[in-house]
């Protein structure tokens, strides 16, 4: 019994310590972010590996999610004779929830894990230490451009996911199942509010992008510099990112759409 409490206490303390290290790390990055601006080359390289390399998986997933929504939505709505509102249903689900959340989950799996592995390996092979000894701050040179790239890429990827999803829903709903093309779009435009739905969705994805990049970079930076330590850190990135995204999503949804 004592042992249980001892273990509980230990893990509580160590997770607080980790949270503290993570926050300190974030502060260091934020201070270093300005130094990226005069050096766009660093940012462009990271936009490539964070954004461009996630582009394909996000587009394809968006297409399929949209098609499935079109199919399922059609069967449910046709029970109520409301197939005409399919466009609105597909777009609302994508823009409000699925776009930001699923894109962020995919982003964590694709880009987040790669970031952790990269930073962890740089630590394991003494590259970070080596830069410090060359009087080059690795936070400025390595970490900050990556956080910024995640921050910029995520809303763009989420928008792509939603837009392609809406087209996928159109393909199935209008193309295959015969929903009227005009009412697909007009119901959508009548039901989706720019401010409440689109802007809030974008805000969500910005927050998710920031959170995932932070988690991924911190896990890499904090990893035990061995191959086992790095592989564990990579797993932790994906798991912790998923929890964080879903938890944040609930909080943000409650704040934005609910009257809480």
């Amino acid at each position: 019994m004592t042992q249980f409490f001892q273990r509980l206490g230990h893990s509580t303390l160590s997770s607080f310590a980790k949270l503290g290290r993570g926050s300190f790390f974030l502060m260091q990055i934020l201070k270093a972010t300005l130094s990226v601006i005069p050096r766009p080359r660093l940012l462009i390289n990271q936009l490539y590996s964070v954004g461009v390399l996630s582009f394909l998986i996000i587009s394809i997933s968006g297409l399929f999610v949209g098609m499935v929504l079109g199919l399922q939505g059609f069967y449910i709505l046709s029970d109520f004779g409301a197939e005409e509102t399919l466009g609105m249903m597909v777009a609302a689900s994508l823009v409000r929830e699925l776009g930001p959340v699923v894109a962020a989950l995919l982003f964590a799996g694709r880009a987040g894990s790669a970031l952790t592995a990269e930073i962890g390996l740089m630590k394991a092979t003494e590259q970070l230490s080596g830069m410090e000894m060359m009087a080059i701050d690795p936070i400025k040179r390595i970490i900050a451009p990556r956080l910024l790239a995640g921050f910029i890429s995520m809303p763009l990827l989420a928008a792509l996911f939603s837009a392609i999803g809406v087209l996928g829903g159109h393909m199935v709903g209008v193309g295959l199942l015969g929903v009227d093309d005009g009412s697909y779009w007009s119901q959508m435009q009548a039901g989706i509010d720019f401010q409440d739905d689109i802007i809030n969705g974008i805000i969500k994805s910005i927050i998710f992008g920031f959170a995932v990049s932070w988690i991924a970079l911190f896990e890499g930076y904090d990893a035990i510099p061995t191959s086992e330590g790095v592989s564990r850190a990579t797993t932790r990135t994906v798991v912790n990112s998923a929890f964080t995204i879903l938890g944040l999503d609930f909080i943000l949804t409650a704040l934005m759409f609910g009257d809480i």
């Binding site: 490539y48 954004g51 461009v52 792509l160 837009a163 809406v166 720019f194």
Partner: peptide
């Protein structure tokens, strides 16, 4: 790499415009 990054950003912004003009009110 530059070209692909440019393309990626253009697609992303295009998608944002699409959401604003075609999907919403």
């Amino acid at each position: 790499a530059d070209t692909l990054v440019g393309l990626f950003v253009a697609c992303g912004i295009g998608a944002l415009f699409f959401m604003a003009l075609q999907i919403s009110n």
